[in-house]
Design a protein around this nucleic acid. Structure first.
Lengths: 104, 104
DNA sequence: TGCGTATTTGGCAAAATAAGCAAATAGTTA
DNA sequence: TAACTATTTGCTTATTTTGCCAAATACGCA
């Protein structure tokens, strides 16, 4: 391969960024960074219709960011890609130029 | 504030993720992580129409991810938010659950 | 001033996303 | 089995995003 960065992970990388590029989905990720939650709980905290929340979760799931664990009637979702949280705080910190800053 | 994560940086965070949620823009970021480049150079490597590339760059610029430096006729863009690169490699590494993995 | 090159912007058509309602599915309990 | 709760999926409409062409702008140079 020419370059580790230019590998064909592009599609997966884009899928991850697309999944996170929505306020509701970002809030869901933030909720899940605290603890696992079921769809209904997330629906209550983010405010949208349950079906809408369910769809948002499935976008996150397809991107490999969260995964679900069914217990009885409920599906408890948890954050698989924890580094998302590091990156989000990096955004607020205005990461420094040389890459040695807020992300590590 | 309730929570550092639930702060009203949401809009900025979403803007950053939206900006990165496109294959062409991601490639531009990867090119710029190697060195500053002008619009025409980026146009040659990513393949789209120059006007399209220019628009993609402006999305990245508005999100605070890159910035431009005009020298003569050319505008040389460079990566401001270097932590993006860390995060992208984290995606490929399948970041571990506890957040102590590939991102640091 | 006039020409050539680099970049940005206006406008439009096509494609992708998003939201909610209604209905379907899955599992629990009487 | 029937009623009930939690979640997902089908469908439609509205909004946003993309890509390109053409035109505008910006700058350098003869």
């Amino acid at each position: 391969m020419d370059n580790v960065i230019n590998s064909n992970n592009l599609d997966q990388e884009v899928a991850v960024f697309k999944a996170l590029a929505h306020p509701t989905r970002l809030r869901i990720v933030q909720e899940l960074s605290e603890s696992s939650k079921c769809v209904n709980e997330l629906h209550n905290s983010v405010g949208n219709d349950v079906s809408t929340v369910s769809r948002h979760i499935s976008v996150l799931k397809n991107a490999g960011i969260v995964s679900g664990n069914k217990i009885g009637l409920q599906v408890f979702y948890s954050l698989d890609m924890a580094c998302v949280i590091n990156f989000i705080s990096c955004i607020g910190d205005k990461c420094v130029q040389d890459g040695e800053g807020c992300c590590e």
